[in-house]
Simulated scan of single mutants.
Amino acid sequence: MSGESGLELDQYLPYRLSVASNAVSGLIARAYEDRFGLTIPQWRLLCVLAEDGGLSQVQIVARTMMDKVTVSRAAQGLAKRRLVGRSENAADGRSHVLSLTPEGRALHAEITPLALAYEAALIEGLALQEVTLLKRLLGRVQAAARQLSGEAGP
């Protein structure tokens, strides 16, 4: 039947990317939720703040491609656990800068080895050159998607 439309779902790249992302996110989400009580958005927020330092929610939205509501909920959950602190944004008095607290940095340091172990297990059957190529191609697909949607950015 798929020959009629020319679209085979299992060969359709956007579908394959979504299914692969959901499979990986689901696997990791269970581990982070069970062991650390974190959602995937909260984990992403922790990572971004660990890498980039203090950021506004607008900057986090741009960096993670998560929507504003998701970022806000993740930030609220992390703030309740005292993993993230809020301070006034000197550049824009209407927003706040989020940054990791010492507890947030400690939790990030505790989870990082697990995250790296999951990544290693996921790519175990791939050669280094394949992993490098996959990362480069994913970056190009992401850039093309941003360009098609009219967004600027890396």
Results as ranks from 00 to 15, higher is better:
91 A>W: 03
106 A>L: 08
6 G>N: 07
130 E>I: 12
120 A>H: 14
141 V>M: 07
8 E>P: 00
58 V>K: 11
154 P>Q: 08
62 A>K: 11
80 K>D: 13
14 P>F: 00
115 A>Q: 13
1 M>D: 15
84 V>D: 05
109 A>D: 13
28 I>K: 08
42 Q>M: 08
74 A>D: 03
145 A>S: 09
82 R>Y: 12
115 A>C: 00
45 L>H: 05
85 G>Y: 00
133 L>A: 15
95 S>V: 12
55 L>P: 03
10 D>V: 09
138 L>M: 10
13 L>G: 07
154 P>H: 05
78 L>A: 05
133 L>D: 14
117 A>T: 10
60 I>Y: 03
152 A>C: 06
75 A>E: 07
14 P>C: 08
125 G>E: 13
114 L>D: 11
80 K>W: 13
42 Q>L: 01
14 P>R: 06
104 G>N: 06
142 Q>W: 08
60 I>D: 07
113 P>R: 02
77 G>W: 06
125 G>Y: 02
41 P>Q: 07
10 D>E: 08
149 S>Q: 09
119 E>H: 08
116 L>S: 05
74 A>M: 03
13 L>V: 13
63 R>P: 03
33 E>H: 12
106 A>Y: 05
92 D>N: 15
60 I>A: 06
3 G>R: 02
18 S>Q: 07
92 D>H: 08
16 R>F: 00
22 N>I: 04
149 S>E: 14
